[in-house]
Write a protein that binds this DNA or RNA. Structure first.
Lengths: 238, 238
DNA sequence: GGCACAAATTGGTAGGACCAGTCGGTGTAC
DNA sequence: GTACACCGACTGGTCCTACCAATTTGTGCC
């Protein structure tokens, strides 16, 4: 008669118990879980069931198991673990190429329509962000530079006056950002030349938009993405 | 360093294989996975290992298992992208123009990459669907024609060999079709000439893909979308 | 044709076993 | 006393077999 209708199975139940222990702090980050055999006896289930529950937690990044050593609680604060895509991008490098390829098309078209339909307000906003980007570049403030970069692309998407491009841009970029954060990579680190080139590319794109030259804007944006792609490809493992 | 503790075990490996199948579309949303026993034999691992891999996928919401029935693929990947969209489109018909515009870009690029990367299997599938479409046309079976049309576009997306195009296509186009159906499809019905033209357009696109001419495929597809757009715009209904 | 029953299939769970690492303790050599 | 090598207990990873409960599907009766 307990209100808790344990969904379907013992695996769920064990998982919830473990989650509860994690949340309550009885299993603080870094600590080791009791061995699977102990847990199995403790919860009065088979080790198989315990293992499957642990696998589910591991899939969400809550714990990490080291063969021969034990299962350890990870730092919960760290993993954002958002959409199913995040993990997939991390696991399948090939998918990253797919995304970049798609992004080339998407952002190219976005720039195209931005150049075609940007109103005065859009142009002003884009101009301001370009100034901001240049300023950050001069200050060698990487964080500010990245932020301005993101905002600039968003402003361009906004200027396209097509909600599909705007929102899709947001999700795709978010996806990539997730991946970059996960992998800790990031290309533009300290490389001044790269940074300068990126700035120049942005300038070309924005100029084309301001001059209302769609084709030019698209080409420039695609070149920009190509450059990004080459940089990302370059510093990767393997 | 970035060695990325890869494949510590068979569970990881099986999970990646399944993920790959999900991304590539060989396991489309709604479909049922082979039984665990079959998968175990297929990957040459124990059923236990397969189960743990499935549990990890289930933890991320990519699949859902129903006792006695089987394991089914969810549409998390698609809704993950187009999440905010279903409602918006339903509420704001104005977005339809945005979607069509986006679709022109998306499907154009999809056809482009399909022409570039279609393998023999893809070509064969596309050819079969073209035949199917012609047959439906001859029979004047509107329902079959629409179904074959949808399948054909999906096959092209599959042939692009890019997960992003595949899944985006499925979600966006599906959404759009739903909307069109809602609005009283119109267009191709009763008008024999329209139907004939659409068939011809599809033929041009498919021929370009089969002949491996990307640019031509893109142009043809965009012309096709333009035509669809003009027809939809034309026949009023708000 | 429709419906009830039986058989095959499927995921869920159990409990056993073995392997390859890791960890801890012990004993020996220095 | 310390440092090192070694060995055994422990742990997760994998495999196996078996059984259960639910579903699906096939069958035959009505």
């Amino acid at each position: 008669m307990t209100a808790m209708a344990q969904a379907q199975g013992r695996v769920e139940e064990v998982m919830r118990q473990l989650e509860k222990a994690l949340l309550e702090g009885s299993l603080p980050p870094g600590s080791r879980l009791p061995s699977e055999r102990v847990l199995a006896e403790q919860y009065e289930v088979s080790r198989n069931t315990v293992r499957e529950a642990v696998q589910r937690l591991a899939a969400r990044g809550l714990v990490r198991s080291r063969p021969g050593a034990g299962v350890y609680v990870t730092d919960q604060l760290r993993t954002g673990i958002a959409s199913p895509w995040g993990q997939l991008v991390a696991d399948h490098p090939a998918l990253r190429d797919d995304i970049l390829e798609f992004r080339r098309v998407l952002e190219g078209a976005t720039a195209y329509f931005a150049a075609m339909r940007a109103d005065d307000e859009d142009v002003e906003r884009i101009g301001a962000l370009m100034d901001q980007l240049e300023q950050a570049r001069r200050d060698e403030d990487m964080a500010a530079e990245a932020a301005a970069d993101a905002k600039l692309h968003e402003a361009i998407a906004l200027a396209s006056h097509n909600s599909m491009f705007l929102h899709l841009h947001a999700s795709i970029i978010g996806m990539l950002r997730e991946h970059i954060t996960l992998n800790g990579t990031g290309m533009r680190r300290q490389d001044e030349k790269v940074s300068a080139q990126l700035l120049e590319q942005h300038r070309v794109v924005c100029d084309a938009i301001r001059a209302r030259r769609p084709e030019e804007a698209r080409t420039a944006m695609q070149s920009h993405i190509d450059y990004v792609r080459s940089q990302v490809d370059g510093n990767g493992k393997e």
